[in-house]
Structure formats: structure tokens, C-alpha cells
């Protein structure tokens, strides 16, 4: 009986060294050499300054920017050190209130826009860090951003098109727009103008 216990301990410790230390370190080594950018968080570095990650959303509530998905992280939205969804039930009155508030805020930011509100703009994402919105949600915001930035609707639409990611391999996932990359490109245009 004690022999089995001894075997258990030795087996467990050896497997820990193999699976818990050697395996992750080997994968880290290969990843850092072959995919250095992806392995370190797909960070966007411009002029030596890290302005975010391509995969992690940031909060935008200034009407001059495109807005992303609502985020339920605490204590502030898009807290990339503590991911979470709202976990509100669809039957929870707080959920309906939250959606109503978000619709109201969108209408306040652009009272001339009477188009239907795309659902992803008013519902919180699962991670609270969703970097994307749907193409419909981006198009919905084009008139507002164009007006506030003194740009033509066409030129803003073009930026949206450039930031649109198609279905992967032609079939997988949903077409989507990366909000941070889109807003960075808006800023670039603004800088060139100046």
C-alpha cells in the first residue's frame, strides 16, 4: 500500500516537471521566437509608445470617436487586468434599463440619427474587452463622427471599410470592425490635416 503512495508521489512530481515546467517553457520559447508579437499581446507600438493591443478594446465615449461594445468590467470599463461580462439575466430589469440608457446616450450624441440601433452597440460583451463592433454598428456611427470631425461621410466610410475584417478563411466568424484601429486611423487623418 505504501509502495503505491511512494509511486504516486514520484509520478506526480515528475509529471509536474514535464507538463508544468518543461512543456510551458518550451512553448514559450518557440512562441517568443516564431510569433514574438502575437505571443506578447499583439501590442500596437508607434514611435516607441504602446498605444494598446490590437486584440483588446478601449473605452470610447467621446462622440468624436467610434464607440465600441459596452463593457461590464470593474471598477471602470475595459479593465484589461480583470475581464468579465455583465452576467445580467435577460429577465433582469437592470438589463433592460442598461440597454435603454445606452440607446438614450447614442441618441443624445447624434439626435439626427433615427436609424435602428444595432444590438451589439447596446449590449455588454462577454469579456468586457471585445475589440470589435459589427459593420452595421460602425456604419451607424459614421454620420456622427464625420460631422464632428468635419470630414465627409465618404472619407469616414472609407476608413471603416479599411478597418473591416472579413470572415476568416472566407467562412469562419462574423465580419467586424476593430474599434481601436479605426479610431487610431481617424487620429492619423486629423494629424495630417494639421
Amino acid at each position: 500500500m505504501l509502495k503505491q503512495l511512494r509511486i504516486s508521489i514520484v509520478m506526480f512530481l515528475t509529471l509536474t516537471v514535464l507538463m508544468g515546467i518543461a512543456y510551458p517553457l518550451v512553448i514559450t520559447g518557440i512562441a517568443q521566437v516564431v510569433f514574438p508579437s502575437a505571443a506578447n499581446g499583439s501590442l500596437i507600438v508607434r514611435d516607441g509608445k504602446t498605444s494598446g493591443s490590437e486584440l483588446i478594446g478601449q473605452l470610447f465615449d467621446d462622440p468624436r470617436y467610434f464607440w465600441g461594445r459596452p463593457s461590464a468590467t470593474t471598477p471602470y470599463p475595459y479593465n484589461a487586468a480583470s475581464s468579465t461580462g455583465s452576467n445580467l439575466a435577460v429577465s433582469n430589469p437592470a438589463q433592460i434599463d442598461a440597454v435603454a440608457q445606452r440607446v438614450k446616450k447614442l441618441h443624445e450624441a447624434d439626435s439626427t440619427n433615427t436609424a435602428p440601433v444595432p444590438i451589439d452597440l447596446v449590449t455588454a460583451s462577454g469579456s468586457g474587452l471585445d475589440p470589435h463592433i459589427s459593420v452595421a454598428a460602425a456604419k451607424y456611427q459614421v454620420p456622427r463622427v464625420a460631422k464632428l470631425r468635419n470630414m465627409t461621410v465618404e472619407s469616414v466610410s472609407k476608413l471603416v471599410d479599411d478597418a473591416t475584417e472579413k470572415r476568416q478563411l472566407g467562412i469562419l466568424g462574423e465580419p467586424r470592425v476593430n474599434v481601436l484601429l479605426l479610431n487610431l486611423s481617424l487620429e492619423e487623418v486629423a494629424q495630417v490635416k494639421r
Binding site: R69, G85, S86, N87, L88, V90, Q95, P118, I119, D120, T123, A124, S125, G126, S127, D130, H132, I133, S134, V135, A136, A137, E174, P175, R176
Partner: peptide, 11 residues
């Protein structure tokens, strides 16, 4: 375009 119950889902 994105249909369905999107609360808690990723685009």
C-alpha cells in the same frame, strides 16, 4: 447585421 441576443457575446 449582428442578430440574436448579443448580451455576453463577442462580435
Amino acid at each position: 447585421q449582428v442578430d440574436g441576443n448579443m448580451e455576453g457575446k463577442e462580435v
